[in-house]
Amino acid sequence: MSLIQKHGKNIAGRDFIVGDLHGQYDLLIEAMARVDFDKIKDRLFCVGDLIDRGADSLKCLSLPFEPWFFGVRGNHEMLALEALERSGNAESLWMINGGTWASKENRTEVRQILFEALTYLPYARQVEVMGQQVGIVHAEPPTDWSMIEDAGPAEKEQIVWGRSRIKRMDKTPVTGIDAVVVGHTIIKQPTWLGNVFYIDTGAFQTGRLTLINAREVLA
């Protein structure tokens, strides 16, 4: 599959973007209800980490099969992939980082759903909103958005795992894109660094799941 999937403007309804789910399926349904989300017309984009730490991880892992849901892969999906492909140390790392929910499920089923879900979870998405382009990755975009097209292993790791930008509080704009929305790093409230918007408010710890109208990103 392509590393990035691009979406034209939603001419029928609205576009929303939601932070890291981490198995908090009920919080997602509540957040969607608050904005009167219409599954026929509206689209929901997610910054990744659908699974781990939350009891409803399997439900969240099935969201990519919904026609209204558009996620990107997060580091927890990749941790699970490594564990289910290789076991051993990768298995231990996954369990330490919230993968214990899988031990209560059928492992073969989890593996099958994960592999299928990943075919719907590219490394990045790009959405036209109000005539501008909004990018979505899990952790950290490259300095130039166009670099995603040909990302190698190091660039992919940055996209899924990176925190250097937020650690430096780097406000340098990402070129080639109007705005980028990311998750991965828990913050008290949605925060801008240049044209990069961090929206992971730690739903599994705080009970606060950030869901925003994509137009707010460009307001």
Results as ranks from 00 to 15, higher is better:
88 G>A: 14
184 H>C: 12
94 W>P: 11
163 R>N: 09
64 P>E: 04
155 E>K: 07
6 K>S: 15
133 Q>R: 12
82 E>P: 00
208 R>P: 00
100 T>S: 13
173 P>V: 08
187 I>G: 01
64 P>T: 06
179 A>F: 00
188 K>E: 15
5 Q>M: 11
14 R>N: 13
71 G>W: 04
74 G>Y: 02
150 D>G: 03
109 E>M: 14
137 V>Q: 03
86 R>S: 11
60 C>E: 01
178 D>N: 13
199 I>K: 08
28 L>I: 10
189 Q>N: 09
53 R>A: 03
45 F>V: 05
10 N>L: 08
153 P>R: 03
39 K>R: 15
193 L>R: 02
191 T>Q: 08
13 G>M: 07
133 Q>C: 03
138 H>R: 09
117 A>H: 03
84 L>C: 04
159 I>K: 01
135 G>R: 00
219 A>Y: 02
120 Y>H: 15
90 A>F: 15
2 S>I: 10
209 L>W: 01
167 K>V: 05
36 D>L: 08
209 L>C: 08
120 Y>V: 02
198 Y>A: 05
11 I>E: 14
125 R>D: 00
114 L>M: 13
5 Q>V: 14
43 R>N: 14
200 D>M: 11
21 L>P: 11
104 K>G: 06
165 R>T: 05
57 S>R: 06
162 G>C: 07
108 T>R: 12
15 D>C: 14
165 R>A: 01
143 T>P: 00
214 A>F: 00
47 V>Q: 08
210 T>S: 14
196 V>W: 03
184 H>L: 12
194 G>F: 04
62 S>N: 12
81 L>A: 07
41 K>Q: 12
59 K>N: 13
132 Q>S: 07
146 S>K: 14
183 G>T: 06
111 R>F: 08
199 I>E: 05
45 F>Q: 04
9 K>C: 04
49 D>V: 10
105 E>P: 01
173 P>I: 08
112 Q>D: 15
72 V>N: 03
105 E>I: 05
129 V>T: 05
2 S>Y: 10
82 E>G: 06
10 N>E: 10
123 Y>L: 15
158 Q>I: 12
112 Q>V: 08
187 I>V: 15
208 R>W: 04
2 S>A: 15
204 F>V: 15
52 D>C: 11
186 I>C: 03
47 V>K: 05
124 A>C: 10
194 G>I: 05
169 M>C: 11
31 A>C: 12
56 D>V: 01
205 Q>A: 15
53 R>M: 07
120 Y>G: 00
217 V>G: 00
45 F>C: 04
123 Y>N: 09
40 I>K: 14
23 G>N: 10
151 A>I: 10
43 R>L: 09
12 A>C: 07
217 V>Y: 00
26 D>E: 14
101 W>I: 04
39 K>I: 10
18 V>M: 04
143 T>D: 14
211 L>K: 06
18 V>G: 01
59 K>L: 14
21 L>I: 12
76 H>A: 12
